[in-house]
Design a protein around this nucleic acid. Structure first.
Lengths: 314, 314
DNA sequence: CGGCAGGATGAATAATTGCTCGTGAGCTTG
DNA sequence: CAAGCTCACGAGCAATTATTCATCCTGCCG
């Protein structure tokens, strides 16, 4: 057995004794026959390796209330609101944690299903919160391209991350979110080898996607999928947000533009039949999120308290 | 809203900040506008109310849980469960490795102690995993005979193997596990030169022993210590297992039989004062192991996950 | 064979967390 | 309305945990 694995075994053991067994480091050290410092190191390693998953199992009344209002107001099927914590980083972790829990619930289903994943920092963090799950019965398909214009895999890619965590078959989309031209898009999505993936993307049982803004900071611009001119033109046409590349206005209608003509992601329409859940938060994104739920491009939302409150206002 | 609920909401929020947000109590206090002590109280409440769910995302966690159940159910002092791997060989290596670790832990003790060793394939493999240890302060004594009926040293002998690894003085028992007759047994164990060894065997500080089945494959029969008639008769009397030759029934009571009258091993009784640890695994051995721990012939167990699960059932 | 880099170890120390206790505000009750 | 009671609060202290640092061990290369 590999020595790293061995060590991680011990780390997991120590973590179990500490968190489940409620033992203190001294006791763990004694039981495991090591020094207290070593026990502490193991615990620290277990934590660093993400072996320790914590979840707060309590519906905070205020959040529940806001979630209920949002559900009612926008006709959402699913809406989860987590408390806003100290800063964006903490709040992001909270939203990611909630998203991860929901993804886990879906993946725990016995029956086989197809899960579609978009992109987004939050989504990515959610996947990292996910425990290892054995769910070979499921298939997970990317709803959008997985590579940046420069050919690298985009840093916010989630599909490759989830492949490390779960045993489900994953289907990436090896292409940019937005192609250079409509012709290139046509050529890329027409690839024979992508038929399965594209087919699956059209019949997902559940989708989790992030929400991007078009005004700065626009992920599409940051990653070089659209130019500053594109961005300005889109804004002039009323664009406020995008979901897996599809750019829409404040009413949630896709914008007629050359950019949308180059998006190679799975199609998105209003009132999806299956759960389509947006995971996003932050003051910047309020307009984009509101447009997405107003236009019923999604029927589910996971966000934080502050964002949720902003969405109930006006 | 009820004041208890409100409090619990705050507790949950504090827990989010602490566990998901990774903030320290000072920071939580600042963010929530309360004193550090209040924050601490909220966290403590959240914990007490079971709001904080922790799990360890590692195969070992399952094993730890099962081990805890076994300890409780059978009143074991020590119980270690290792993950079941691909096949019996790999799993055996894992159990042996765990056993070796525990033996090593005992041998690392500064103070002088007497360790008793039984037989068994697993125990043998455990010794082979042992590193070289300088521990002249200890004495290691065989709890059972070290030679086969044909005069050879039984292939599963562990005492000679450990002598290569550690510098402790070893005391073998140059006789068969089970003698040909009660008279032969009396003559053998009466040998003057064995006085020291027998004396040590009676006051071991810790014992590691394997568990054998009486139904095929029965090590005692395979090695020719008992005849097929013996075996059948023992089974008819309800024998399910043996520890260093002592044959017992499903309740862990030694069986009244000529075989047990010929066993030359160290005596075994229920509820040993000192740690007496069984190392065994495999579906064949479940009944024998269960009987041994039910009858409290041993107070410790090292096994694999599958076996452990089988032991928790029924 | 010796020296060196890297990692592991344990002691000392710093930081953080948990607990106890006295105080006082707010509520109940006579 | 006052006495008594409860309970939350924060200070101080004890316990526990995290970090730092010097040292040691180990494997590896010259």
């Amino acid at each position: 057995m590999n020595s790293v694995d061995r060590k991680l075994d011990d780390a997991a053991r120590a973590a179990w004794l500490s968190h489940i067994g409620g033992m203190k480091q001294d006791e763990i050290a004694q039981v495991m026959g090591i020094s207290r410092q070593s026990a502490q190191r193991l615990l620290s390693q277990a934590h660093a390796a993400g072996l320790v998953k914590v979840r707060i199992d309590h519906p905070i009344a205020r959040c529940m209330g806001i979630a209920a209002r949002l559900r009612e107001r926008y006709g959402l099927d699913t809406c989860e609101v987590v408390p806003s914590l100290g800063g964006p980083a903490e709040t992001g972790a909270a939203v990611a944690s909630a998203t991860g829990d929901m993804i886990e619930r879906w993946l725990s289903s016995r029956s086989s299903l197809v899960m579609g994943l978009g992109t987004g920092r939050t989504l990515r963090a959610a996947i990292e919160h996910l425990p290892h799950i054995d769910c070979a019965q499921h298939r997970i398909v990317s709803l959008t391209g997985n590579i940046a214009p420069d050919g690298s895999t985009a840093h916010y890619n989630v599909l490759f991350t989830i492949a490390d965590k779960v045993s489900a078959t994953t289907y990436p989309m090896p292409m940019p979110v937005i192609s250079a031209s409509p012709e290139e898009r046509a050529a890329l999505i027409g690839q024979k080898t992508l038929e399965t993936a594209r087919g699956l993307a059209q019949r997902t049982d559940v989708r989790f996607i992030g929400v991007g803004t078009i005004a700065d900071p626009a992920p599409l611009a940051l990653d070089g999928f659209i130019s500053t001119e594109d961005q300005d033109r889109l804004i002039a046409k009323g664009a406020v947000g995008e979901l897996i590349g599809w750019v829409f206005d404040e009413r949630g209608n896709l914008i007629e533009d050359s950019v949308n003509a180059r998006v190679s992601s799975a199609p998105m329409g209003a009132d999806p039949k299956e759960p389509t859940i947006a995971c996003a938060f932050g003051p910047d994104k309020v307009a984009a999120i509101r447009a997405a739920i107003r236009g019923r491009l999604v029927n589910g939302l996971i966000t934080d308290e502050d964002t949720a409150v902003a969405l109930t206002e006006t």
